[in-house]
């Protein structure tokens, strides 16, 4: 017995078989072959009454045509896809943001050295961002022109170094933590400055940590990031929360030290601020600064990204332009 619905369902089920991945060759046999429903129905057609012939004749033809179309089309496309010489084409895909990509890479390197990720808030108490880090109450860094303040006197942290107080509160030495994340500076943006940027800070406290270790960790980091032949130098610098304080420079990768535009003709790039944790910070955490020593460092993530990708305008990193985002990562 023939009926409309079951014939119509042939198309639906052929479609679903196709989607299920059955080959069109098999499906043509199943739906159009000698044992197929449609073939059998055509064979039955002569035995029907003329009214029934009028009803089912066109229906069968239309279904057969539809099935042919359905199964034919696929044959065609599958033929094209078997052209192994066709150029490579990527499926719809995404991109890591260069900043986050860089950040993940940096964290990964420090993780391998034994640092653990420790995350803290971005909107912080002034104590964590300033006082605890020995930035005095009247220090110009706290001024409105350098720091974003909320109406309830909280700080949009200006440095990931703000995580030191919470780290000392939460962990018993020895510990080694890192954090990468957003920091904020109330200043106008240009080719080398952003007001919302990212920083990575490292902080380790132990009984036997000293300047040689600070240098070792950072040199190792740069070698893993930029290759074994990076050249570095350390020179004195001042940060209120470390003593001695240092700046680590990396020899310009572009000009190999002879001076070019990328390095401001100096041959060197200022890349990491670092130092030995100031004894007052150890002391304010209730530890004996004669026993415990710390190493600390801070790295601008965007600055590393700009070196890695040889970019010249930092603002590209916050524009969300697809043409930029699909280039690098």
């Amino acid at each position: 017995m023939m009926d409309n619905n079951s014939l119509n369902n042939l198309i639906i089920s052929a479609k679903s078989d196709l989607e299920a991945g059955q080959s069109t060759y098999d499906l043509r046999i199943k739906y159009l072959g000698k044992n197929s429903e449609i073939f059998k129905s055509f064979k039955l057609l002569p035995s029907l009454s003329s009214d029934e012939k009028k009803e089912f004749g066109p229906l069968l033809n239309s279904i057969k045509a539809n099935l042919e179309l359905l199964l034919q089309e696929d044959v065609k496309t599958s033929k094209i896809s078997q052209d192994y010489t066709a150029p490579l084409k990527v499926h719809k895909h995404g991109h890591s943001h260069p900043t986050d990509y860089t950040m993940a890479l940096m964290i990964n390197i420090f993780s391998k050295l034994g640092f653990k990720v420790f995350e803290t808030p971005e909107i912080e108490d002034e104590n964590d961002n300033f006082s605890f880090l020995r930035v005095a109450k009247d220090h110009p860094a706290r001024d409105m022109q350098d720091t974003f303040w909320t109406t309830d006197e909280k700080v949009l942290r200006t440095q990931t170094t703000a995580f030191q107080r919470r780290a000392l509160e939460q962990f018993k030495p020895p510990f080694a933590v890192i954090q990468a994340g957003k920091v904020f500076r109330a200043e106008s943006e240009d080719a080398t400055h952003l007001s919302e940027l990212n920083m990575l800070d490292g902080f380790a406290i132990g009984t036997d940590l000293n300047f040689t270790h600070l240098k070792g960790v950072l040199y190792n980091f740069l070698r893993q990031l930029f290759g074994n032949d990076v050249k570095v130098r350390f020179r004195p610098s001042f940060f209120p929360f470390v003593e001695p304080g240092a700046e680590m420079d990396m020899m310009c990768l572009k000009c190999k030290g002879s001076g070019c535009k990328a390095c401001g003709n100096s041959g060197w790039l200022e890349i990491i601020g670092c130092g030995i944790t100031h004894p007052e910070i150890i002391e304010s955490a209730g530890l004996d600064p004669n026993i415990y020593h710390g190493i600390a460092f801070g790295i601008g993530v965007e600055r590393i990204a700009m070196r890695m990708f040889e970019m010249d305008d930092i603002r590209e990193l916050v524009k969300n332009n697809p043409e930029f985002l699909e280039q690098l990562t």
Binding site: P140, D201, F239, I272, G273, G300
Partner: peptide, 8 residues
């Protein structure tokens, strides 16, 4: 003058 790591 701000002195924090990563500030230039």
């Amino acid at each position: 003058m701000i002195r924090s790591f990563g500030k230039d």
